[in-house]
Lab assay of single mutants.
Amino acid sequence: FIDQHRAALIARVTNVEWLLDALYGKVLTDEQYQAVRAEPTNPSKMRKLFSFTPAWNWTCKDLLLQALRESQSYLVEDLER
Rank of each mutant, 00 (worst) to 15 (best):
L64K: 01
L20F: 05
V27M: 04
A67G: 04
T14Y: 06
L65H: 12
D21F: 02
V27T: 04
Y24M: 07
R6G: 07
D62T: 08
N15A: 04
R37M: 15
T14E: 14
Y74E: 15
R69V: 09
A55I: 10
T53A: 13
Q4F: 09
D21Y: 02
T59D: 14
I10A: 04
I2W: 05
Q4I: 14
R69T: 06
M46E: 02
E70R: 09
L49A: 01
L49K: 02
P43K: 13
Y74N: 15
R37L: 14
Q34D: 12
L68W: 00
E39Q: 10
L20M: 08
A7R: 12
F52I: 06
L64Q: 09
L63W: 06
G25D: 11
A35H: 04
Q4K: 13
T53D: 01
R12P: 00
V27C: 14
R69C: 09
H5D: 03
L49Q: 01
W18T: 14
K48M: 11
H5M: 12
M46I: 03
D3Y: 03
R69Y: 05
R69I: 11
R12T: 03
S71L: 02
Q66D: 12
P40A: 11
F50N: 03
P43C: 12
Q4G: 04
A22L: 12
S71H: 13
C60T: 14
V13M: 05
A38Y: 00
M46D: 00
N57Y: 02
R47Y: 01
S51W: 02
Q72Y: 09
T41G: 07
L49T: 06
S44Y: 00
E80P: 07
P43F: 08
P43I: 06
A22I: 15
A7F: 05
S51C: 08
M46S: 01
E70H: 09
W56T: 03
V76I: 13
W58V: 15
N57R: 03
L63R: 08
D21I: 04
D78K: 10
P43S: 13
V76G: 06
W18V: 15
A38P: 01
K26R: 12
A67S: 06
E77H: 09
V27D: 01
A35I: 01
D78I: 12
Y74F: 09
A38N: 10
A7Y: 06
A67L: 14
V76M: 09
K48Y: 00
D21W: 07
P54E: 15
Y24G: 07
F1T: 05
A67T: 08
Q4T: 15
E77F: 12
N15Y: 06
V27H: 03
R37N: 13
Q34A: 14
L65I: 09
T14S: 13
Y33L: 11
A38I: 08
F50V: 06
T53N: 00
L20K: 01
S73F: 06
P54W: 13
S51D: 12
D21S: 09
S51I: 01
S73H: 12
F50Q: 01
E77V: 04
P54C: 11
E39D: 00
T53C: 09
L68D: 00
K26N: 10
G25H: 11
R69S: 06
V16T: 06
L79S: 01
L79A: 04
Q32P: 00
A7Q: 14
F52V: 05
E39W: 00
E77L: 08
K48I: 03
D21M: 10
A22W: 12
E31F: 02
T59I: 11
A67C: 05
K45S: 10
K45W: 02
T59A: 15
T59L: 12
Q66R: 14
R47I: 11
A22M: 12
S73P: 15
D3G: 02
E31G: 07
S71E: 00
A35Q: 14
W58M: 15
K48S: 01
Y33I: 13
F52P: 00
S73N: 14
N42H: 05
V16H: 02
A35K: 11
W18M: 14
G25Q: 08
R6Q: 10
C60W: 11
W56N: 02
N15K: 13
G25F: 01
L75A: 04
V13A: 13
T41Y: 07
A22Y: 14
A38R: 13
E80H: 14
K26F: 07
T14W: 01
M46V: 09
Q72K: 05
K48R: 12
A35W: 00
E80T: 12
K48G: 01
S51N: 02
D21H: 12
L28I: 12
D21K: 10
E77R: 11
Y74T: 15
E80N: 05
G25A: 08
L63C: 08
L64V: 12
V36I: 12
L19Y: 15
R47E: 14
T14F: 03
E17Q: 13
K45M: 09
S71A: 07
R69L: 07
L23H: 04
P54N: 11
P43W: 10
T14A: 08
T53S: 13
D30F: 08
D21Q: 13
L75F: 05
Q4E: 13
L20I: 12
R47G: 05
V76W: 05
R12E: 10
L79V: 03
M46P: 06
A8F: 04
L19C: 12
A8V: 08
L23A: 03
N57I: 10
P54I: 12
R47K: 14
Q32Y: 01
S51P: 03
K61I: 00
Q66H: 04
Q4M: 12
F50W: 04
Y74A: 15
E70F: 08
